[in-house]
Amino acid sequence: MAANFFKPQQKRGVPVQQVQAAELENQPWVEKYRPKTIEDVSAQEHTVAVLRKTLTSTNLPHMLFYGPPGTGKTSTILALARQLFGPDNFRSRVLELNASDERGISIVREKIKNFARQTPRAQAVSSDGKTYPCPPYKIIILDEADSMTQDAQAALRRIMENYARITRFCLVCNYVTRIIEPLASRCSKFRFKPLDPTSTSSRLQHVADAERVPVTPAVLDTLVSASQGDLRRSITYLQSASRLSASTDPPIPITPTDIQEIAGVVPDAVVKNFARVLGVDNRARKKGFDNIREKVREIMREGYSASQLLSQLHDLIILHPTLTARHKSRCAMVFAEADKALCDGADEELWILEVALKVHRACS
Rank of each mutant, 00 (worst) to 15 (best):
L238F: 07
S127V: 05
A124S: 14
Q205T: 14
G72R: 01
V270S: 08
S242M: 04
Y33S: 10
T167F: 01
R191A: 15
Y132H: 12
S311H: 04
C170D: 08
I259H: 02
R52V: 07
G264Y: 11
Q205P: 00
I112A: 06
V108C: 05
E45Y: 00
S188M: 12
N114C: 03
A332V: 04
T56H: 11
T248I: 00
L323C: 10
S227L: 07
C170R: 07
F169P: 09
D258S: 08
R93S: 09
P197K: 04
A246F: 02
G70P: 07
R165D: 15
V270Q: 13
I262Y: 09
R276Q: 13
S106W: 01
V277Q: 10
P250Y: 10
K189T: 11
Q44H: 05
Q18L: 08
L231N: 03
L220P: 06
C170M: 07
Q118P: 00
P136V: 05
H360D: 15
A49P: 06
G279L: 07
C134D: 13
V16C: 00
S185M: 10
L350R: 05
Q9S: 07
R293T: 09
T177S: 15
N26Y: 04
W351M: 14
Q312T: 07
H62E: 10
L316T: 06
A99H: 02
L142V: 11
R178G: 01
T76I: 07
Q18A: 14
Y66A: 13
T255N: 07
L97Q: 08
S185F: 10
R330I: 04
C187G: 13
N4S: 14
S75V: 03
A332Y: 01
R109W: 00
T131P: 01
S305R: 08
S234Y: 04
A122M: 11
R168H: 07
T198R: 14
Y304R: 09
L231C: 04
E31V: 02
L313E: 07
I166V: 14
M160N: 11
I252L: 14
L231K: 03
M1L: 09
R34Y: 02
A356S: 15
A325D: 15
V19G: 00
P120S: 14
D230G: 06
S247A: 12
Q123R: 15
S92V: 07
K73E: 09
N59D: 13
R283C: 05
P217C: 01
L95R: 10
V215H: 03
V207L: 06
T167G: 03
N98S: 08
F5C: 14
A2P: 00
D209K: 13
D196T: 05
F115M: 09
S147T: 08
P321C: 06
P15K: 01
A269W: 00
P256C: 06
A152H: 01
S100V: 09
F6N: 14
A336C: 05
V271Q: 02
F274M: 13
M1V: 11
K11F: 00
P68V: 08
A99V: 03
P251D: 10
I166Q: 13
R186G: 12
L195Y: 06
I180Q: 11
K272I: 09
